[in-house]
């Protein structure tokens, strides 16, 4: 898959809080006030009544909801941070409740999509909130830690929570994180493959390392490709106001997808 020269990985640009996306301070000057740009760019393109949105329909931003699930400490926040800002820390503060983040991805033909990432607390008791946060998700990324067998064994619980709430209307993604710690591995790659193949609407399963920055871009590339915009028969019919916006359809052929 060859990316057009104009669009490289750099096109993974976080619009949300520019100063965060670029700690060095060279934040893209989207708006005079950094705070304002947190909110405004999205609204220009969001699915407001026609008068609110831009005339050019191809610029209307499609939004997708992606929830991150999995046991405590498997690296959900780390995965998101790597994707959002391309940085890594040895430790992240535990997530309490839910953290909401967004990232705009630029794809081929000036096509942009906005991913709303729901980072969740892993501890079991927080699951009493879960149904409400799995609702209407387009993608559920369920994570485990390859050095922690228990987190792999618990995938079943997470998967059934998702299926219960979303049925088949969701793309299930299984991620085995911390693949850099191969010497401490408790779950083999084969086990992941067996599990991945056994789940009906799980087309994506892979091992990642947020520390070594391994497979993270590939992961999101695969996800972007399998989203309804590229694959029109996927669900989400129940949210017409956000998903059914007509966009100049280019069937997402293998090579038209642009990201390195």
């Amino acid at each position: 898959m060859v990316a057009p020269p104009a669009r490289t990985c750099g096109a993974f640009l976080a619009r949300w809080v520019p100063s965060l996306a670029n700690p060095a301070g060279a934040a893209p000057a989207l708006s005079p006030s950094p705070l304002k740009s947190r909110i405004l760019p999205n609204l220009k393109y969001s699915s407001f009544p026609p008068s609110m949105s831009t005339n050019d329909k191809s610029n209307i931003l499609r939004k997708y909801k992606i929830v991150f699930l999995g046991d405590q400490g498997v690296g959900k926040t780390s995965l998101i941070t790597r994707f959002m800002y391309d940085t890594f820390d040895e430790q992240y503060a535990a997530t309490i409740g839910i953290d909401f983040l967004s990232k705009t991805m630029y794809l081929e033909d000036n096509k942009t999509i906005r991913l709303q990432l729901w980072d969740t607390a892993g501890q079991e008791r927080f699951r009493s909130l879960i149904p409400s946060y799995i609702r209407d998700s387009n993608v559920a990324i369920i994570c485990y830690d390859i050095t922690n067998k228990k987190s792999f064994d618990n995938l079943d619980k997470w998967i059934s929570e998702v299926k219960l709430e979303r049925g088949e209307d969701v793309i299930i993604v299984i991620v085995g994180n911390k693949s850099d710690l191969n010497n401490k591995r408790q779950v083999s790659a084969e086990e992941l493959e067996t599990l991945g193949k056994s789940i009906e609407n799980c087309s994506i399963y892979l091992e990642t390392s947020t520390k070594a920055n391994h497979n993270i871009k590939l992961l999101f590339k695969k996800i972007a490709k399998s989203l309804p915009e590229f694959n029109s028969d996927s669900g989400a019919q129940n949210k017409p106001e956000t998903i059914d916006i007509t966009i100049e359809t280019t069937t997402g052929g293998e090579n038209s997808y642009s990201c390195c």
Binding site: K36, S46, K65, F100
Partner: peptide, 22 residues
Amino acid sequence: EEFQNAKPRKKNTELEQVELFQ
């Protein structure tokens, strides 16, 4: 000011509410 500008108008869907939550 940011909130005032970002306030969802008529439609108040999940995806818009989430932007406010952020």
